[in-house]
């Protein structure tokens, strides 16, 4: 399974790529696979506050809807506008063009998993 080593993960299958006091946030390849064809992404608005492990939006597919939890705390500084018209980007490229939003961090992220730990979690869930 594709789990990039450059970022950190949550138990609820989001990722955060941190650099220079900011974090790019998305969902994992495993999560998009579980959801199936994604049809709509509801993102926080720019300027709003998000808190680590609290609800920040939701993702809908044809047959499921799932809450989106922010992996980090801070202020939203950008959202991926392209998803409004092409939510399928989350399916096609969850770690790249399918990113969700960008946060200016309030504090260093805590309680996140590294790629190895996340990989282990996915394997466990499959059984």
């Amino acid at each position: 399974m594709n789990i990039p080593e450059d970022r950190k993960y949550t138990q609820s299958h989001e990722w955060a790529l941190c650099a220079d006091g900011e974090a790019l946030v998305g969902i994992t390849a495993h999560a998009q696979e579980l959801l199936g064809d994604i049809t709509f992404v509801d993102l926080p608005s720019v300027g709003s506050k998000v808190a680590a492990h609290a609800e920040a939006g939701s993702i809908e597919s044809v047959k499921a809807a799932s809450e989106l939890y922010s992996p980090v705390s801070g202020t939203v500084v950008a959202v991926n506008k392209a998803l409004e018209d092409s939510p399928e980007k989350v399916n096609l490229d969850p770690y790249g063009e399918g990113w969700l939003f960008k946060v200016k961090l309030d504090e260093e992220p805590q309680d996140l998993l590294d790629a190895a730990a996340y990989s282990e979690l996915c394997e466990k869930e499959d059984h």
Binding site: T39, F40, E60, K63, A65
Partner: peptide, 13 residues
């Protein structure tokens, strides 16, 4: 369509 909003999927939400 847009069934993901509905009770049989979202239940209490």
């Amino acid at each position: 369509t847009l069934q993901a909003r509905e009770q049989h999927i979202r239940r209490s939400k």
